[in-house]
């Protein structure tokens, strides 16, 4: 058993471990924030932009530039829009001062 490990095996290792991390992290997300979870994962999945940037900015201009540029423009909507709308929603979940002062009354009724 000698030689380098094939990149695909490394990739599968990372993939499986990342699924485990995702599973545990996401189960800990409070149900109240499931909509922001979805919008922020939208923004995060737009990291495919990395691939599109390489094509758009490649040294040789051609179809690849066009395909990549289009993909960058489309997915940048997600990146910027996703984080912005998540921020907007989370701002609404701020504890307001009046909420703090009234918090003790929120216990179960008599």
């Amino acid at each position: 058993m000698t030689g380098l490990v094939d990149p695909i095996v490394v990739n599968i290792t990372i993939f499986v471990l990342a699924i485990f991390v995702g599973y545990h992290v996401v189960w800990n997300v409070t149900p109240a924030l499931h909509t922001p979870l979805m919008s922020v994962t939208n923004a995060i999945s737009s990291v495919v932009m990395v691939g599109a940037l390489l094509a758009a900015g490649s040294a040789t201009e051609g179809y690849g530039t066009l395909l990549g540029g289009l993909a960058v423009a489309l997915v940048a909507i997600n990146t910027f829009g996703g984080f912005t709308v998540t921020h907007r929603m989370l701002e609404m979940f701020k504890t307001k001062d009046r909420a703090k002062t009234r918090a003790p009354r929120t216990g179960p009724g008599a």
Binding site: A56, G57, S58, T65, A73, V75, I77, T79, T84
Partner: peptide
């Protein structure tokens, strides 16, 4: 990337519309 201008330009176009919608 070799052509930062193209890559960045495309990103700005998408990013501005994304923020506007959001």
């Amino acid at each position: 990337t070799h052509r930062v201008d193209i890559a960045l330009g495309a990103m700005v176009v998408g990013g501005v519309s994304g923020v506007a919608v959001a």
